[in-house]
């Protein structure tokens, strides 16, 4: 029955005009704007030859930059997994004055240009800034260290976990929770054994998206990072520096490495979403 409906719908869809035109426009734009330039990147990186690719990829400076970008992004994603879940929980479950405002404000890192975020974070966390002075009093140096990189990455990837978890938390029915409570589970046990497993896929998806965004981030980081080679120099900045030295091959290889890792992540997220849709019927 459902297969028959599906088939009829499929045929009806074909009645609609404009398939050739819309697909043509999409494919042309996609090829010219996205695919051809990315192909140029792959070609350029490949033309360097295996020996040179290996030399660039394993040079201490490249490794340090990649380690910082991926390491700091990983920690930022972890921080946001914890606090993003907390924010989503508070927004969905509790009512308090200013809830709407907070809900809207979560998207600020999406809307605020990265350069603005960068100089704002640098102003706040610089040794003479409001929080920087506080941290300095405690003996911590934040700006111009890897810690500053981490803080910038937490800022830019903040909305992802909240926005992934929020709808799932909203739609999770109260029945199961009530059942758990009626069967004698403590609240803590209900939270950890009933609620959290249900939102785990969304949480993981959000954290992965946050990680992917943080890895490639450039604008908000460079102002607060200090950009000391081998210490607080992120991978995207290394690409910019190599380009400024007209080292196209070097820039292409570092770019290619980052792209490969990002694409692997994208596939992972897609597989994760498909899996959770099959298993749980949502996300």
């Amino acid at each position: 029955m459902s297969a028959a409906t599906q088939k009829r719908r499929w045929r009806e869809h074909n009645i609609l005009p404009g398939f050739g035109l819309s697909l043509g426009v999409l494919l042309t734009a996609l090829t010219l704007i996205v695919l051809a330039p990315l192909a140029a990147l792959v070609l350029r990186a490949a033309s360097a030859g295996p020996a040179e690719i290996y030399a660039i990829a394993t040079s201490p400076r490249t490794l340090a930059a990649l380690r910082l970008s991926f390491g700091a992004a990983f920690i930022a994603a972890l921080v946001n997994a914890v606090f993003g879940l907390l924010i989503a929980w508070v927004l969905v479950r509790y009512s308090f004055p200013g809830r709407r405002l907070i809900d809207a404000a979560v998207d600020l890192p999406f809307a605020l240009p990265t350069a603005v975020a960068g100089i704002a974070l640098a102003a706040v966390w610089a040794p003479n800034g409001s929080l920087g002075a506080l941290a300095a009093g405690l003996g911590w140096k934040v700006a111009y260290t890897p810690l500053g990189v981490m803080i910038a990455l937490v800022f830019v990837s903040l909305p992802f976990v909240v926005r992934s978890v929020q709808p799932v938390l909203q739609e999770a029915s109260a029945d199961v929770e009530e059942a758990a409570a009626l069967l004698g589970a403590s609240r803590l046990r209900t939270v950890f054994c009933v609620i959290l497993p249900g939102i785990a896929p969304a949480l993981l998806t959000g954290a992965t998206l946050a990680f992917a965004r943080a890895v490639g981030e450039y604008g908000s980081v460079i102002f607060i990072a200090g950009n000391v080679p081998m210490v607080s120099e992120i991978a995207p900045l290394l690409i910019v520096i190599k380009l400024e030295q007209f080292d196209y091959a070097g820039a292409a290889v570092v770019g290619m490495l980052m792209l490969l890792i990002s694409l692997t992540l994208l596939l992972l997220v897609n597989a994760l979403q498909a899996w959770s849709r099959r298993r749980l019927g949502y996300v």
Binding site: L38, A40, Y248, A252, M258
Partner: peptide
């Protein structure tokens, strides 16, 4: 795809 590509790489591909 462009969402998961670093902005710097988005610029780099055009320079190449």
């Amino acid at each position: 795809l462009p969402f998961s590509v670093s902005p710097v790489i988005a610029g780099l591909v055009y320079v190449l």
